[in-house]
Design a protein around this nucleic acid. Sequence first.
RNA 1: GGACCUGUGGUGCAGCUCGGAGUGCACGCCGGCCUGUCAAGCCGGAGGCCGCGGGUUCAAAUCCCGUCAGGUCCGCCA
Length: 671
Amino acid sequence: MPETETASGGQRRALSPQGPASPAAPPVPLLVNGYRDRRCGSLRNTDIGSEVRLAGWVAAKRDHGGLLFVDLRDPIGPDAYLPVTDWPQGDAAGAGTGPETLASTGAPAGTATDASLARGHHNARIVQLVCHPGAEAFETLSRLRAESVVSVTGRVVARPPETVNQKLATGSVEVEVSELEVLSSADVLPFSVERDSEVGEEARLTYRYLDMRRGPVAERLAKRALFAQVARTHLATRGFLEVQTPVLTASSPEGARDYLVPSRLYPGEFYALPQAPQQFKQLLMVSGIERYFQIAPCFRDEASRADRSPGEFYQIDMEMAFATQEDVFREVELLFSALVSNLTQKHAPTPYPRIKYADALARYGTDKPDTRFGLEVVDLTSKLGGRTELPMFAEAPAKRHAVRAVLAPGAAGRPRSWFDAFAETARASGATGSWLQLPPDGSERRGPLSRKLTDEEMDVLAAGAGASSGDAVLTCVGPSASASVPLGQVRSALGRELGLADPGLLAFCWIVDFPMFERNPETGAWDFSHNPFSMPQGGLKALEDNDPADIVAYQYDVVCNGLELSSGAVRNHLPEVMEKAFAIAGYSRDRVERSFPALWNAFRYGPPPHAGIAPGFDRLFMLLEDQPNLREVIAFPLAQNARDLLMGAPAPVTPEQLSELHLQIALPKKP
RNA sequence: GGACCUGUGGUGCAGCUCGGAGUGCACGCCGGCCUGUCAAGCCGGAGGCCGCGGGUUCAAAUCCCGUCAGGUCCGCCA
């Protein structure tokens, strides 16, 4: 069947950061050919009387014997966020186009305003076909299974008033089928595409194409495409050049486990897939590129989490020459604002608050705090430490322990098991947990602390935590760096249970001043605590004069709602500073040179100062879409164990392939 | 590397605590009826190695051990 591109070019204009579906954006045309000349979901009252050709999937069949209804469903297209038209010239009469932004996408005029009718959604992609027994198509159509694909010709007719369906965008009309062509027939499906039932993860991944045909995942992919376009367009207007970097590269000694690719030409040698284009982007800075970005694939052979894909993921990798930490913060806030305003109706206050790493640990017990709500951990070391009869508090200053507390609103009446669980959590992280309950009726305070503290001390504790009747105060005593951790966990749990977080808020914040080094608890040696290429604050002098424990780096994270979205840093571009930093971490100059030959050499030839960041693309999009895990925003995700249930990867290869690569398999012996 | 949750006709679930015949629900599937449905309705039917292996027991979907698969978390992720 010939396919005719009837639109003039059919191109979309680049999206402006201000609005993808702004009036300036031309509507997306339909390919008009032998398959169809209209989209199912586009038919309206104004089409009554016209003859149309439609194609799509048989979504549902209602066979009355003497009368047959079929719901025909469009494919999922860019109409999820762009205006569409069924006419080459961009005549928008039937497609409900207009100056809508995605955030305000509403129902087409003249029908129900149900949110499920929003453009691009399931009920906006359906039209009802009607077929009478006399019609030639009747027998064939009535025998077709759901999800078969057909092309039909028919006349658009008005539905009898009492049968108008408010749930469909096309609900006031139907199409009387005169001709039917079966384009493909479907076998019985492993699960229903049309019904809104839960399907197990295994079945969804194995039949991912059917899972996507159900709607939500594919609609999200359409939105993900918009996300990428907004990011690209925005960064381009900010002067960032999109540069692609190799996927086959060298293994780097730092970081996660590498995925290795054996070399055929060089027996016994391997490429590695990049964990991130970190060294390449720094080399681009040395190359004289002013601003670089890339939606970069990253590969890490590490265990997965709901917010961490196994195997591979994408970063919006960015780097700028002659830039400071402030410049990076501003560019990221501008980029995120463009993404948030184009893709969501959430609010994301700027500038993002900045929290020192050490403060984040103290106030939230984590370096990725959810700052949408309060309940911050308070430090009562100076008020209660050393002053009470209770040994735990009394001895804290001498042991250099911190006394910390968090408010548990309305928790006075919680069961003993809840408090015990907290105490156990505290013990597991090497601290001592206790608590005080303030009964709602104002009666005698209860809990272990009530037995050892004076009334005045309890007042200090309650006031310090901001507790009143009905609340509880949880306390934790331990080393300063870890005393807040169990309290932070309780804080997060309380936030969830009590619904303290505004779901419409994206509370971004910067975590700054990460320590440069940390002691390896086993060897006592100094390790890089994060990125070894970060510039220490104070430069060479700080490295020479200060205790490594006190050196902080120009190293930062951007965090939102308790999710870490990215790490970044002002890079260390000075070989002598790098040499010293690596020396503290126990690397000889020789070893640095051997480990990072390209950077080491490049930095001898005039590297500009530079800084950058690499926000996680999938994770940021998952956050904006309120999705609980990354599989919901990825077309073909691996299962948790890094298996591809659809394609069957990984899989053994032939002996010939192995031999060509000079590889032998030595499986571990079974016990 | 470790912990926990889940696994029951094609799909989703109940049954498992307290062992007693594969018992049940919703959907799907097959056949029949049906001219205004909207995930149509009504009648009938088929479909099961209760993930797999071992153990305890007179008897195991149910209890125990192991294992596989899916998920969540800890470690890990410079």
